[in-house]
Design a protein around this nucleic acid. Structure first.
Length: 436
RNA sequence: GCGGGUGUCGCCAAGCGGUUAAGGCCCCGGAUUGUGGUUCCGGUAUACGUGGGUUCGAUUCCCAUCAUCCGCCCCA
């Protein structure tokens, strides 16, 4: 470091934090650009609430800030998220963290507010910002958003199936091309069974341990299943050899870990949901039991996961609640938005050009009450200028009032696409005059 | 944390050692003191990311730094 270089006070405080985004409105003319717009966001949100509520899921909103301990215990002490990706700070000798994912907070609220006493299953969904301290790149931000579903209090193949169907159905409802999305699914067993599975896997790989990368060697001790997720080619070569692959595919899981998963696959087949049973699929969060799944796409660059989830039968207990087997998933909203096709935005119906401001406000209120989108020109400029504004804003109609109209208490109604114009009353009938 | 690319007005973008640092879009005004979308004219702006170095002279070359984008890792 060059010690005689004194960094000058800069504009940093006036900039967005790295990895955060402003979501901006786009004008009608801008739509079609790939930029993330508030317009597309609203399109998603509107459909989202309707979609979940149609299946009787209730929205839950939990704080963005929680005690650090919640995530340490909920997500898992050894996970990447907890060890290196959390925004954590100290306040009044408590450690606080901006939530890196949604499930832990939802489960905390479920326990704290006694939702565990409601009839099971409790069906919840959420949508909100999450925070992870990572290097930003395409499809990855430090503040991003997730839509999540949690189905609490039931351990049936049907519950797993519904959660997956809800995700797949949401993609369909949002108009995503089906061929762009792949469902991958796997069984990681119940904890007590997974311990044996893990030991068996370690025994199988023991001989090749020296050939594995450093990360894999560390995972061999701490979290052997995550080894399978390794991207290093030399490691993958080892994991993909027949002995390992056959082991994964043919591992004799006890009935309690195996049967419900097989029933789930039958249900998915029955429902015509296509999936890939990927024995190498493992997930980075510690709380999953038995079913894990992921929806991936090939259209988003390196960040190919759009939805991840699975069953978590012990998390609620871990966080101090009664035994509550549950299943859930989360979708990355920004990634989802990039797969969506924007609808044409609603167009401005009426632009009111007048220097008689009270009359302009009155007619605007009148027409808005009928559901029209109406804007009043506030510039007090010449009518020609105001009309130019009407065009720039791509309004369908302009209501024009100059001196003579003010005398007669009427408006000139101009259809801006056709150029036709007629005289209307001071409060024209929306049904009659703004029909087409 | 580790690689690679890129930084010139709000946006796009020329200049690549000596320029009043082009041009286009947007915005504002005028032609048109009451009628738009076309056209013509004019106008606003702390624009060369920041700090050093080389040089008589740096937007241009070198170094560092910051920001941003893409990739690794990880995840949604």
């Amino acid at each position: 470091m060059d010690t005689n270089t004194v960094p000058k006070p800069n504009k940093v405080v006036l900039q967005r934090l790295k990895g955060t985004q402003d979501v901006l409105p786009l004008s009608v003319a801008d739509v079609g650009q790939p930029a993330l717009s508030i317009h597309l966001w609203q399109q998603l949100e509107q459909l989202l609430h309707q979609y979940f509520q149609a299946a009787n899921y209730q929205e839950i909103r939990t704080p963005s800030l929680e005690y650090t301990e919640l995530f340490a215990r909920g997500v898992g002490e050894a996970t990447d998220i907890v060890t290196k990706e959390m925004f954590t700070f100290e306040r009044s000798d408590r450690s606080l963290t901006l939530r890196p994912e949604g499930t832990a907070g939802v489960v905390r609220a479920f326990v704290e507010n006694g939702l565990s006493r409601q009839p099971k299953p409790v069906k919840l969904y959420y949508c909100g910002p999450m925070f992870r301290y990572e290097r930003p790149q395409e499809g990855r931000q430090r503040q991003f958003h997730q839509v999540g579903l949690e189905l609490l209090g039931l351990d049936t193949p049907a519950a797993d199936a519904e959660s997956i169907l809800m995700a797949a159905g949401l993609f369909r409802a949002l108009g995503l091309p089906q061929e762009a999305i792949t469902l991958r699914i796997n069984n990681v067993g119940l904890p007590e069974d997974r311990a044996l599975f893990r030991d068996a896997l370690k025994a199988l790989l023991f001989a090749q341990l020296p050939q594995l990368c450093d990360t894999c060697q560390a995972r061999y001790e701490k979290n052997p299943l995550r080894m399978l997720d390794c991207k290093v080619p030399s490691c993958q070569a080892i994991y993909r050899q027949d002995t390992v692959s056959d082991f994964l595919r043919q591992y004799p899981w006890p009935d309690s870990s195996r049967v419900p998963f097989e029933q789930l696959l039958v249900l998915l087949n029955e429902m015509g949901v296509s999936y890939v049973h990927d024995p190498y699929l493992v997930r980075g969060l510690d709380y999953y039991t038995r079913t894990v799944f992921e929806f991936t796409t090939d259209r988003l660059g390196a960040q190919n996961a759009v939805c991840g989830g699975g069953r978590y039968n012990q998390l609620v207990e871990t966080l101090g609640g009664p035994p509550t087997p549950s299943v859930g998933w989360a979708i990355g909203v920004e990634r989802l938005l990039r797969l969506m096709t924007p609808l044409p935005p609603a167009r401005l119906d009426v632009f009111v050009c007048s220097q008689d401001i009270p009359a302009a406000f009155r007619v605007a209120e009148h027409l808005r009450a009928a559901g029209l989108r109406v804007e009043v020109d506030l510039s007090e400029r010449a009518l020609g200028k105001q009309l130019a504004q009407a065009s720039k804003r791509q309004a369908r109609w302009a209501l024009i009032r100059g001196e003579s109209e003010q005398q007669a208490d009427e408006w000139q109604l101009k259809h801006l696409d056709r150029g036709t114009q007629q005289t209307v009353a001071s409060l024209p009938d929306p049904q009659v005059f703004f029909a087409s």
